[in-house]
Amino acid sequence: MKTRWEYVLLPSFLIVGLLIVASQYVFLKGSFFKDLGLGRISDTASMVNYLRFFTDSFYLHTLWVTVKTSGLAALFTLTLGFPVAYLIARMQSKWSMILLAGIVVATFVTIVIKVFGLIIIFSADGLVNQALMGLGIVDTPYTIIGNQTGVVVGLMHFTLGFGVLLLYSVIQTIPRSLEDAAQIHGASRWRMHLRVLFPLSLPGVTVGVLMIFNMCMGAFTSAALLGGGRVFTLPVLIQRTVMMEIKYSMAGTLAAVLLVTVLLINLLSIYLIRRLRSARLVIA
């Protein structure tokens, strides 16, 4: 008798369906009704919340800030994380496991503690500002609280360890012998990276960057603590709309826009990467 292994998927499918799809459905449905105050919503469906979102510069600006800070954080995480992941993946000593374990442990630290660590380091009398002022680079303390730079730094701090682990697993799948072969045939190290490592790692790196980007788009703590009440990303605005204004429908609309934006950016990125790869194959 043939074993139906696909049934193993059923429990996970049901749990995901219940926890994610059902909760999203409640929010999505609610987003099509008008808020009447005190958490009550109208009985008649309408597009009033969506109309407000897409015609109000404040909401559009918030969406832009969310995408911008998440995109920058994902790019900087890739830039910083890739060399680290590459070195660890290619390291042949016991240090590779020690470093990897260190990164894994670092990802266990809760984001609240990580962010407070940043706040202490960047405080007026903190390590960074003392060094910057001691070297004469700045006259007055530099702060990362209450500005978008701080939020990007916080998001990177949130995702960097995770990013290195993702990129490490991607690089591990590329045989080292290919790099050696390219260099034996005269390719410089830089050219080998550009023509061998980059194309081969591109699908994995794309997925990794998208995962980091998605995490940033939904991140609340870094944006709330480092934004200092000035940087409104969509998750921050959703929290304020639910908890302070008690406008569940508008919050549902913001959540729906966030969800759809993330989905669209992911699909578009995958489409573009596929186009890029097929174009490269044709050229080759």
Binding site: G37, F58, V65, R230, V231, F232, R240, M244, E245
Partner: peptide, 14 residues
């Protein structure tokens, strides 16, 4: 107060 929040958000947002 709902309008206060709205005005505040628009004013302080970066």
């Amino acid at each position: 107060t709902s309008d206060w929040i709205d005005q505040w958000n628009r004013s302080v947002s970066q």
